[in-house]
Amino acid sequence: MQNPAAATSASEFAELPATASHGPLRIEYRWVNETACDAPIAVFLHEGLGSISMWRDWPQALCERLGMRGLVYSRPGYGLSTPRPHDVKWPVDFMTAQARDILPALLDALDIDLPERRSMWLIGHSDGGSITLLYAALHPDALAGAVAIAPHVFVEDISVESIAQTKQLYETTDLRAKLGRYHADVDSAFYGWNDIWLNPAFRDWTITSELAPIRVPLLAVQGHDDNYGTMAQIDTIADCVPHAELVKLDGCGHSPHRDAPQALNEAIAAFVSKQK
């Protein structure tokens, strides 16, 4: 069992061995609210252009509110984790691979055992929200609950259009320099995400048929002003997982933890408290 000693920490690194689905990986991770050694763990899964540092202080604030210990990590290709080789394209099922292979391997590397996993919560944003849903479906007995923030369960025109616009901004403005503050290899992060979302083969991607096994408490959150997805995303989750609870935030775009942190934290805290 991981037993951190400090209240906050710098990034550490976990070495994941090669498997049939991936080569050896070095994963950047960080514990927050570390002194709460006996508290349940909340695992944070970042967005498609995210990393540990892009979360800023939100995981810390939420963990303090929930009385949980937080695990934040950068997925392969992001932050200080192993970059994506520039000649490698993410496959259409890249999010399923993260839920099926990478996250369980990271938990193994950190000696997070099954009893700890059964009390664990996943909190994911955007692509990380989709991975959260997939993990909850694939590992229904290794989780206490899940929060999916602005997740994707199928591809909408608004998503593709916004991602195409982001590519133009990346290649013509200072967006690349700004994102470079958060990733050791910013092109690895950006084009890994952008290329797969703009790949015509990805247009038919959906995980709606994979959500039915979710048994744990599930909260899905969406902002009314999200330019990467509509309310159809979380409404579809409710159709597939009838016990899911939905929160729809006014005056909020694609990043509720930045756009409406107080409302988001209130919603998550209220939902988690009902499960105790």
Rank of each mutant, 00 (worst) to 15 (best):
Q2K: 03
N3S: 11
A5V: 06
A5Y: 11
A7F: 10
A7E: 15
A7N: 11
T8A: 08
S9E: 13
S11P: 09
S11K: 11
F13Y: 05
E15L: 05
E15P: 10
A18H: 09
H22M: 08
G23A: 12
G23K: 09
I27L: 10
R30N: 05
V32W: 01
V32I: 11
C37N: 12
D38Y: 01
I41P: 03
V43A: 02
H46G: 06
G48M: 08
G50C: 06
M54I: 11
D57R: 10
W58A: 02
P59E: 02
L62M: 12
L62F: 06
C63G: 09
L66M: 04
L66T: 14
M68R: 00
R69A: 05
G70N: 07
G70D: 01
L71C: 07
V72R: 05
V72L: 07
R75H: 04
G77S: 05
G77W: 12
G79N: 07
L80R: 12
S81L: 13
P85G: 03
V88A: 15
K89V: 11
T96V: 06
A99I: 00
L107E: 07
L110F: 03
I112P: 08
P115C: 00
R118A: 06
R118Q: 08
W121A: 00
I123R: 03
H125L: 02
G128V: 04
G129A: 06
G129F: 03
I131E: 08
L133K: 11
H139E: 04
H139D: 04
D141V: 04
D141W: 00
G145Q: 02
V147Y: 00
I149Q: 11
H152C: 06
E156F: 08
I158S: 15
S159R: 14
I163H: 14
I163A: 09
E171K: 07
D174I: 05
L175S: 07
Y182N: 04
H183G: 07
A184G: 11
D185N: 13
G192F: 12
G192K: 04
N194I: 08
N199I: 04
A201N: 12
A201K: 10
A201W: 10
A201Q: 12
F202M: 10
R203L: 09
T206E: 00
I207T: 14
P213F: 09
I214H: 09
V216K: 01
V221T: 00
V221P: 15
V221I: 05
V221C: 13
G223C: 00
G223D: 08
D226G: 02
D226A: 01
N227L: 15
N227F: 15
Y228K: 05
T230R: 08
Q233F: 12
T236E: 01
T236W: 04
T236G: 10
A238E: 15
A238I: 02
A244E: 01
K248Q: 15
L249N: 12
G251R: 15
G251S: 14
G253P: 13
H257Y: 13
A263W: 10
E266L: 10
A267Y: 07
Q275S: 04
K276W: 14
K276T: 14
K276E: 13
